[in-house]
Design a protein around this nucleic acid. Structure first.
Lengths: 342, 342
DNA sequence: CTGAAAGCGCTTACAG
DNA sequence: CTGAAAGCGCTTACAG
């Protein structure tokens, strides 16, 4: 089966390739009659223009990169899916979102940033929980390739975040008002040198958490902090045991690192004979779709995923279309979802 | 910032574009000396070849399509992620897997199949739980674009499946041996006309389920069957209530439609005051990463996702490299994971 | 080992 | 309104 090219259509229709191209691209400097004739042949032969040829010629890929540590993370997926839903709504970049995962490796992250930029692979980049240095930001700015950060905020790039400070504050304040005194914090992205590096969002959550403690006159004991790296259920279990090993008896834990961690914490705490929330109150982060079905149902901070998704995609589209004079920094309100775990 | 092209590199190195191309493509008919000189300049200027130009010229996209109803489904994600992990292992098609979602619409599915094929968008297509007609299969075969089906099986396409018949059998037999007599079945993909259409995998699961019943002399009452369409937790709740409404009192339910359904069923059953597993045993399907943390922990059929992922990717790669003389039909063993819900 | 030339399949000014 | 021509940025025979 020979591949169909524009010349084949032109020949059969008895017109020029330009004419066919005009039909493909919906230009209007073409007569209705010719247009119809060409359309019929295109449909009959099921012709579609070669994507790569179009990209090469137009210099526009109609494609947006979505970078994350890995797509398998359920939070990542919910974000990606929200973006996808919004492509259907706007009709733009449908099937044009390409996932790139850094495998949580910093080097790979830089490689991908470079590859996309210099290889002109996509029209824009959406980066979830990525913490590139200023050099990357500047390169993208200079090359005028829009970069939209989620869970990060830098002056010379667009960004969409929830109010992480407020989220941390809300969680802590809720626990304090419930009478909890010894509140542990599990948080990722607080240390530069590690595999997972620094996260702006995490820092904000911690700051908000501490602000609430301070407001109510509670001093934050640094031993009440455990650092998260992998964001898995298993790590939540380990981290809970770290508190035990340190001989610390908490009456609450705020898992700023996400619901996965909270699931692990609850599971392990129960194995130590603790009742949740009586002996230990647990608050998660994200509100995964399963949060209401864990044992007990998880109290958590909801990230309004769909709002984030639409803000991100719209910003990307506007930036690609050069409708943005300056960098957008969108803040979305988090929400405390109260269930049974706290 | 002017975009760097091969000519720039050639000029700076004082060589021809061909020479640069040879370095990019790792050809060896070039002297070490020239090669090094060119490499240095490429590195210094951070040059990357234009992907679309390469694709256009080489006729190979280095890209594989991954089709599914939507990527947001957690099962889909786990499969996609397994494929992704395997791209890192093989070093092939890294960041070359492009998700296409049909939004569960049959028409969109056909549109995507055509678009990919005629627009030469990818080198191969992996289709999860898609049920295209013979015409599509034949078109792909003729065009020699490899098509790998997951959760479906057709003569003229590659496929990777678990043994769904056995899975259905295992689930039913386990419940019967536990003394359950009135076993309900929730299953998707059994009806052509609907939005979600027919699924080969679902049919097999049901057949296996019925085979076990038959073996133990239990007659399957058709009122014990509820049809699933959306595979969500909420639908699981509804479907459970359908049994109640029909006045049917079951002592077990096998959710062949997946763990999500099982979660919904358990939740609603508890609201009706039933104890799980005492009053109602529930078996799910998939073994999602959260399955052990629901209330109670879910007994379920595990799909060995990573095995599926590597089988799928390897088949795709082999097929693209034309190493396959005939269509591969890979069957992977399912596994019954016993926890507390049954 | 090196490079000039053709061409992949389109789109875009431009002339008519 | 129509079409001839140039060119997007590469790679691939091929001649030397």
């Amino acid at each position: 089966m020979k591949k169909l090219v524009i010349k084949d259509i032109a020949r059969r229709a008895g017109v020029s390739e330009s004419a066919v191209s005009k039909v493909i691209n919906n230009y209007d400097d073409i007569s209705e009659k010719t247009k119809e004739k060409i359309q019929k042949i295109i449909e009959k032969l099921n012709y579609r223009p070669s994507k790569s040829a179009q990209i090469l010629r137009k210099g526009k890929t109609n494609t947006i990169a979505f970078m994350s540590g890995r797509i398998a993370s359920h939070f990542t997926v919910e974000i990606l899916s929200a973006i996808e839903r919004n492509t259907f709504i706007t009709g733009k970049y449908v099937h044009g979102i390409i996932p790139y995962s850094t495998n949580y490796e910093k080097e790979k992250m830089y490689e991908i940033f470079d590859k996309i930029l210099y290889g002109r692979e996509t029209d824009a980049v959406i980066a979830l929980a990525m913490n590139p240095d200023l050099k990357i930001i500047t390169k993208y700015k200079k090359a005028k390739v829009p970069l939209i950060l989620i869970e990060n905020d830098m002056k010379d790039a667009h960004s969409v975040n929830i109010d992480n400070h407020k989220a941390g504050f809300m969680a802590a304040e809720y626990l304090i008002k419930k009478g909890r005194k010894k509140i542990g914090l599990i948080c990722g992205g607080l240390q530069e040198g590690t595999r997972f590096g620094y996260s702006y969002a995490a820092e904000q959550r911690k700051a908000g958490f501490e602000a609430a403690l301070k407001k109510y006159g509670i001093k934050f004991d640094n031993r009440y902090l455990e650092l998260c790296e992998h964001y898995t259920i298993e790590e939540g279990m380990e981290l809970f045991e770290n508190f035990i090993k340190k001989g610390i008896k908490l009456d609450a834990i705020f898992c700023a690192s996400g619901d996965n961690t909270a699931v692990g914490v609850m599971d392990k705490a129960k194995k130590y004979g603790m009742k949740i929330p009586n002996d230990l109150a647990v608050v998660g982060f994200d509100d995964l779709m399963y949060a209401a079905f864990f044992n007990p149902p998880l109290t958590t901070i909801r990230q309004p995923i769909d709002k984030i998704g639409s803000a991100v995609l719209n910003t990307a589209i506007e930036a690609i279309d050069k409708k943005l004079k300056s960098f957008k920094h969108i803040i979305i309100e988090p929400e405390l979802i109260i269930r049974s775990s706290a």
